[in-house]
Deep mutational scan, measured.
Amino acid sequence: MSIQHFRVALIPFFAAFCLPVFAHPETLVKVKDAEDQLGARVGYIELDLNSGKILESFRPEERFPMMSTFKVLLCGAVLSRVDAGQEQLGRRIHYSQNDLVEYSPVTEKHLTDGMTVRELCSAAITMSDNTAANLLLTTIGGPKELTAFLHNMGDHVTRLDRWEPELNEAIPNDERDTTMPAAMATTLRKLLTGELLTLASRQQLIDWMEADKVAGPLLRSALPAGWFIADKSGAGERGSRGIIAALGPDGKPSRIVVIYTTGSQATMDERNRQIAEIGASLIKHW
């Protein structure tokens, strides 16, 4: 067993022997301040990774656009098919120029040779490549099948209805392509620590998230040296922004954090800054 596999296998073990965790309302004060600064709703939840206990939450059962955070769930569904012998990570998928959609920095470079399922998941999570996500959605049967996968996990809230990039439209009061912070946090925890996926697939999923290259201005910008984070960000229309993450000190994750916002007129930089400040408060009061 590799060191990384050992780390993920012992996530519940280490967490069980940690000192009790206590909620700190100071972080919620910052979440509410972010709402004021952005002029928009902000949803927040913080779960203990081992027990699933909610440590703090704000608007945990209000719907927010998922945006690209759905790509972690998508690759979880792909990995479940791999575990069941219905898919192979090494299978190569070929596609054409007509398949390319807006923001496809990886797939646009491989029109000639195609990409493997493993490479597509890596591109979808680490670079948020939209064509990679659409190609992977095709392998599982489309958005409705991802929703069905989530329902089978016990998540009857999260739903995907459309493809990239239309799913980022974020129309107010439109339930399409949305989740709730509580539902997303619980589902992410199941994917990373539950028995739904094999140990190898859980490790692969967290490795992809740990290698995320496009979430630097968010929670990662607030992390002290030595902290662990595996995350996936999302951005959408109407001032929408979000991030889902597993993080913790001492090089291992111990909490799940989900943050979503929508309806702001603020710039992307300002949305990023507010999420980073929430992260800084979380870490300060850990």
Results as ranks from 00 to 15, higher is better:
Ile229Pro: 00
Gly226Leu: 05
Glu102Ser: 13
Ile11Tyr: 11
Leu247Trp: 07
Ile93Trp: 03
Asp113Ser: 13
Leu167Gln: 04
Val29Leu: 09
Val78Leu: 09
Glu169Cys: 13
Val78Gly: 01
Gly236Asn: 06
Leu205Ala: 03
Gly239His: 04
Leu282Pro: 00
Arg63Pro: 08
Gly279Phe: 05
Thr179Lys: 00
Thr69Arg: 00
Gly279Arg: 01
Ile243Pro: 00
Phe14Ile: 13
Thr179Pro: 00
Ile206Cys: 14
Gln203Leu: 10
Leu136Glu: 01
Leu19Gln: 15
Ser80Met: 12
Leu188His: 04
Arg220Cys: 03
Pro25Cys: 09
Ile93Met: 03
Cys18Ile: 01
Ala200Arg: 14
Pro20Asp: 15
Arg162Val: 02
Gly239Thr: 02
Phe58Thr: 09
Ile283Val: 12
Ser264Leu: 04
Ser221His: 12
Arg176Gln: 14
Thr179Cys: 05
Phe6Cys: 10
Arg59Asp: 02
Arg176His: 10
Glu56Val: 08
Glu237Ala: 15
Thr261Asn: 03
Ser68Lys: 00
Lys232Phe: 00
Val8Thr: 14
Val8Leu: 14
Ile229His: 02
Trp286Arg: 02
Pro60Asn: 10
Leu247Cys: 07
Glu195Leu: 04
Thr27His: 06
Glu119Gln: 14
Ala245Glu: 00
Ile54Trp: 08
Glu175Pro: 14
Val31Cys: 14
Ile229Asp: 01
Met66Thr: 06
Met127Leu: 12
Pro172His: 10
Glu87Arg: 02
Ile256Lys: 00
Ile54Asn: 06
Glu195Val: 07
Ser240Phe: 03
Asp36Leu: 15
Ser122Asp: 15
Ala123Met: 03
Val157Asp: 15
Val257Asp: 00
Ala225Ile: 14
Leu146Pro: 00
Lys232Pro: 00
Asp269Arg: 11
Glu145Leu: 09
Ala77Gly: 08
Glu164Phe: 00
Leu196Lys: 15
Ser281Trp: 07
Glu26Val: 10
Ser51Ala: 08
Ala34Asp: 02
Arg7His: 13
Ala124Gln: 02
Thr262Asn: 10
Val78Lys: 02
Arg162Gly: 08
Met184Ala: 07
Ala77Trp: 06
Arg59Thr: 02
Met268Tyr: 09
Asp269Val: 12
Gly39Pro: 05
Glu108Cys: 07
Thr193Leu: 11
Phe6Ile: 10
Thr198Tyr: 07
Gly279Ser: 10
Arg92Phe: 10
Thr138Met: 13
Phe13Asn: 03
Gly52Glu: 07
Arg59His: 08
Leu137Pro: 00
Thr179Asp: 00
Trp208Phe: 07
Leu74Pro: 01
Glu195Lys: 10
Leu19Ala: 15
Leu136Ser: 02
Gly216Cys: 08
Glu61Ile: 09
Ile171Tyr: 14
Gln88Met: 11
Leu282Cys: 11
Lys53Val: 13
Ala84Tyr: 10
Ser104Leu: 01
Arg7Glu: 08
Arg41Asp: 07
Asp155His: 01
Leu135Tyr: 03
